[in-house]
Design a protein around this nucleic acid. Structure first.
Lengths: 162, 162
DNA sequence: TATTGTTATACTCTATAACTATA
DNA sequence: TATAGTTATAGAGTATAACAATA
């Protein structure tokens, strides 16, 4: 997926060869995931952990709900939260009405780190699109948003996560 | 940083809210990775494995070179190739001049699966952008390509070479 | 009975450090 | 000594199946 081999010609003065919508999006996704991964690495975390922090920035879900938000099995969520809690990023809180249930929330440390990482990702991603014109960035933002919204709507999901 | 609200034309039932360049790209990357993951899952593979198949479609690298291409430690590549070989997707071939070295190549099965998955990803990704206009898809393709190219250049990578 | 969450188990993926064999 | 690759080990992440406790 990294490359299909487009005919490689001599260097054009203004290359910007079109990779096509498929390769373009696939490679862009790996680029973005790379940025996320390196940002996470700086805090000795993983992409999944920072995604968790992102999701918890404006929610306090139960375990099953959290698993659904992240697209995981609930047993996977158990381990994920175990590890995040061991690092002091999140806590499990009891639910008054239901003795089976527990909600997950960020700790102060978790929230601070979530914000620092978000700022770092912001920097790196803006750096990555710095070659585009203002109009280009604006268009890219809108096109990406439209695709994401369309897909979310198709899945019956509403709010965006991080 | 939601930007100014562009007046939506009569074609849009609802305004496509702009997620901003950062959230738009991050969420789009998860969407694309999700498509890749589900495509891989259909063959009982992982994203890493199909990425491996993609890389090997037009290369026959040594282990160290392969690790560099995938951004892994060479020991990680060993396990990755072990598992892929066990599934009959790739083979290790001896290098005549150097008894330490080995190159990795797709088997016929591996190549067939690589192509089937590529076709499936193509379908799903085109489906995902089906709501955009032709112009929108064209622009998205070009913008993504430009960002990817810029980043690759910054890393001194030249896709398609050694 | 259904739901919420955990445990047991097995596998993939990854890195670090130490190792073998060759160059 | 340096390079190519593997092994040993440890940890994260994931799913399935079985389980306990509560509703």
């Amino acid at each position: 997926m990294t490359t299909t081999d487009p005919v490689r010609g001599p260097r054009s003065p203004r290359p910007t060869e079109d990779l096509g919508i498929v390769d373009g999006l696939v490679q862009l996704s790996f680029l973005v995931q790379g940025i996320l991964g390196r940002a996470a690495d700086g805090y000795d975390l993983t992409i999944v952990q920072i995604r968790l922090l992102g999701v918890l920035r404006d929610r306090e879900p139960g375990m099953s709900q959290l698993a659904r938000l992240l697209g995981l099995d609930k047993s996977s969520a158990t381990g994920l939260i175990d590890r995040a809690a061991r690092r002091g990023l999140v806590t499990r809180n009891a639910v008054p009405g239901d003795r089976r249930a527990a909600t997950v929330a960020l700790t102060d440390t978790g929230r601070r780190i979530a914000e620092e990482i978000a700022a770092e990702v912001d920097r790196q991603l803006n750096q990555a699109v710095s070659e585009l014109t203002d109009t280009g960035r604006k268009r890219l933002s809108l096109l990406a948003s439209r695709v994401v919204r369309h897909e979310a709507a198709g899945l019956g999901l509403d709010p965006g996560n991080s």
